[in-house]
Amino acid sequence: MSKLFVSDDEDEPMTNTGSESPTFIPQDHGEDEDPVVSEIPMIITSKPAQTQLCALQYPGRPSARHYENESHVLSTRLKPSTDLLEADVPIDTSKFFDVNKSDEWGGVNKQTLSGVLIGLEGYYAANVQNGEIVLCQLDKVAQLRPSLNYIDKEIATARDLHRLENNHSGRDTVQVVQMSVKSSNDNAPRLGEALMARKKVEDESFTQLPWVDSSSEASLALKKEIFQADNRNVLRSNTNEEDYIGLLVKDISAN
């Protein structure tokens, strides 16, 4: 079995978290076409307490174009218990921008990206510095997609208008409303789990989060803090390969 994953796995009993771990190179099973080129030390750091490290992915955005500098994120919002994250980014109005459409939609000048934070195990933020790789475990990952909610808003307003109009031109008859008392608990519609989740999201309100651009000083400082590798103790594993594999499959236990 390869020892590839020994260093960065949480199943590994670690005596000292922030310590340097010895480098493991995948042991080839006699396949010589994959030779060892170089060895790089890997360092696992622990992030400062009460810091959440989340990765934001922007599918559909070329990886070369970061949201920074002039196209930096304007504001971010989070619904803490449902982990819905929204970020506003500016739109480049100089190119490919339809002013008429924008006016139609009530003057769109920013794009809203939204996504749900998902907890993922075994994902790390890494930085290569001084010939070393420094790893810091991520808490959550979110894929942010453009949500185009101005279109939904426009449709909603149109619908409201339509309804109002209908009400005005409608019959002026007096409607008799019959009131009936229903017992509270038996006839309430039982929502499916997905609907419940949506209801929860809708019920919760956003809390604003301050955005710090990656080029700013504070952000650089934090980055430095996270990737500061001061503990260079070599991490000795006290599990052998056999036990390690046992740990991997501990909840399967075939036989």
Binding site: T82, V116, G192, E193, L195, A197
Partner: peptide
């Protein structure tokens, strides 16, 4: 119990289509 069309849509995607994958969150 009638649901709104939006709710019906969510319910359809979450439970009806490809029913063996049930979605519990958003």
């Amino acid at each position: 119990h009638k649901l709104t069309t939006l709710q019906e849509g969510i319910e359809a995607v979450a439970t009806t289509i490809i029913a063996h994958l049930t979605v519990t969150d958003l």
